[in-house]
Amino acid sequence: MEYKFTEANFNEEVLGSDIPVLVDFYADWCGPCKMMMPVVEKMAEVYDGKIKVGKINSDEENALAAKYGIMSIPSFLIFKNGEVVDSATGAMPADALAKKLDAVL
């Protein structure tokens, strides 16, 4: 299942999560973000129950994007125990993203 994170639910869903969380910062107009959509959806399926996978629209949630220093999209942050433990920017192959996720399990 893919989540939609917002400022309203971020503390509970991401920072308070008892499992690691992959956050995809994206925008609707971003070509590389669109390329990554099926990859992120696949990660949500593969890691269901082990890692929470969700998106933040950086245009709609610019305070969160600013808080985490998001300058380019797509940007991926991996949280564990409320802390950022890994990050990546730009489109990447599914196996590269999966390797990052496997490292936090």
Rank of each mutant, 00 (worst) to 15 (best):
M1P: 13
M1F: 01
E2F: 12
Y3V: 02
Y3H: 14
K4Q: 15
F5S: 05
T6L: 03
T6N: 03
E7Q: 12
E7S: 14
E7I: 08
A8L: 14
A8E: 15
A8Y: 13
A8Q: 15
N11L: 00
E12G: 05
E12I: 03
V14E: 06
L15Y: 07
G16A: 08
P20L: 08
V21M: 00
V21C: 05
V21T: 00
L22G: 00
V23Q: 04
D24V: 08
D24I: 00
F25H: 03
F25G: 01
Y26H: 14
Y26P: 02
A27S: 12
A27W: 04
W29S: 12
C30S: 15
G31I: 10
G31A: 13
C33M: 06
C33K: 06
C33W: 02
C33P: 04
K34Q: 15
M37A: 14
V40C: 07
E41T: 15
K42C: 01
M43D: 01
A44V: 08
A44D: 04
A44W: 05
E45S: 15
D48H: 14
G49P: 02
I51N: 03
K52S: 13
V53F: 06
V53P: 02
I56K: 01
I56C: 09
I56M: 02
E61C: 04
N62Y: 07
N62Q: 12
A65D: 02
K67T: 09
K67R: 14
G69F: 06
I70D: 05
S72H: 11
P74S: 11
S75E: 04
S75P: 03
S75F: 08
S75V: 02
L77I: 07
F79Y: 00
K80A: 09
K80T: 01
N81W: 04
G82D: 05
G82M: 08
G82P: 04
E83A: 09
E83I: 06
V84R: 10
V84F: 06
V84K: 07
V85P: 07
V85T: 12
A88F: 12
A91H: 07
M92H: 03
P93M: 05
P93K: 11
P93Y: 07
A94Q: 12
A94I: 14
D95C: 00
D95E: 14
A98P: 08
K99L: 05
K100N: 06
K100P: 01
L101A: 10
D102K: 09
D102I: 08
D102Y: 04
D102P: 03
D102C: 10
A103H: 09
A103C: 08
A103R: 11
V104L: 02
V104Q: 03
